[in-house]
């Protein structure tokens, strides 16, 4: 987009109409918004040098700053699409070689299992920072089969990986609707040709179908139950977050349809890694990485027997859920 020309030709009102985010720039820079039918240049020419000095601005740089700002803020976030992620083992806590190498593709769901303190979170952290033999585990993470330079690691900074963990909570004082609109807006929805309503609705509907108990768009995000918040976080990761990799660190026991949640993320072409102690989640994955003494001990493919034993596990799980529901609504539990 030729922002340079747009800013020259369009009035401030027109700019803000087409790119609402430019309003943020004008407010950030304290540009008076009284004569919005004028162009930026015209407005700047009405301000005296004292004004520029006061606000630490330079008369001649404001135009270019706005060009940069619009370029940065409307840049397509899809640049982070990746085809594969390869983990090459390093050393475990005892200094022994891990002898592991595996490659994950979009749509793959892998569970990470092992005792507490064994190093599950460490593996997720290595993936998050795209370790290049420079973390305590000496692991290497390749993107599309290639090592990653430090510059790329900085540039990707947090954009490659979306994370979900038990410790995460919503803190913004917003309703579900406002919250989703704000997130969508930050990703460029509502700017230029990108519509806002579609993605917000899809996300809301999905979150509700994952949550055990339903909620409305008017509910404050901080008032959602544990299960509802997880459901919203997962739906948001699936529909809004542009990160191709999703790392989930121990989110069991929540009132969320876990199987559905994982299926959803996989269908959205994410690479999903779940650190878990939950048999249903672990077996729901196509592969599982077993961690021992800080190292990758085995990488197992979920066997057909394991897949079929999930039916039984699901039955037990449903039984527990039912007992929980009965207790909460004051009913008696029949003998089993």
């Amino acid at each position: 987009m030729d922002f340079d020309r747009l800013i020259e030709k369009r009035s401030i009102a027109q700019l803000m109409e087409e790119f609402p985010i430019s309003g943020d720039f004008f407010r950030n820079a304290n540009i008076p918004l009284t004569d919005t039918h004028k162009t930026l240049q015209e407005v700047l020419s009405t301000l005296d040098d004292e004004w520029f000095y006061e606000f630490g601005q330079n008369r001649f740089e404001v135009h270019n700053q706005l060009v940069d700002f619009l370029q940065d803020m409307t840049a397509s976030e899809n640049a982070q699409a990746i085809k594969s992620l390869t983990v090459i083992g390093g050393k475990n806590k005892r200094g022994e070689d891990e002898n592991a190498r595996f490659t994950l593709m979009p749509g793959d769901v892998v569970s990470v299992v092992g005792p507490t303190g064994s190093g599950k979170s460490r593996l997720l952290a290595d993936i998050e920072c795209l370790a290049q033999g420079d973390t305590p585990t000496r692991r290497h993470i390749l993107v599309d089969g290639q090592p990653v330079t430090d510059d790329v690691r900085f540039a990707l900074g947090g954009k490659l990986v979306a994370q979900l963990s038990q410790n995460m909570n919503f803190v913004m004082d917003l309703t579900v609707q406002e919250f989703l609109e704000m997130h969508a807006g930050s990703l460029g929805a509502g700017q230029g040709p990108l519509p806002m309503a579609g993605v917000v609705n899809a996300c809301f509907e999905k979150a509700n179908s994952l949550a055990g108990e339903k909620f409305t768009p008017g509910t404050k995000v901080t008032m959602l139950s544990g299960g509802q918040s997880r459901a919203l976080m997962i739906a948001d990761c699936a529909y809004m977050s542009q990160s191709p990799i999703v790392l989930i660190d121990e989110i069991e026991n929540a009132g969320v349809d876990r199987r559905k949640a994982i299926d959803l993320l996989a269908r959205r072409e994410k690479i999903v890694l779940i650190s878990t102690h939950d048999p249903l989640l672990a077996l729901g994955a196509t592969h599982r990485i077993v961690i021992k003494h800080g190292g990758i001990y085995r990488v197992l493919t979920t066997s057909p027997e394991e897949k079929s034993s999930m039916k039984e596990l699901e039955r037990v799980d449903a039984m527990l859920a039912d007992a929980r529901r009965k207790l909460r609504s004051g009913e008696r539990i029949a003998s089993l």
Partner: peptide, 14 residues
């Protein structure tokens, strides 16, 4: 680490 992914993304955007 204690806020949601969405809030992290919105904050980073800010």
């Amino acid at each position: 680490d204690i806020v949601s992914q969405a809030e992290r993304e919105v904050f980073a955007w800010g």
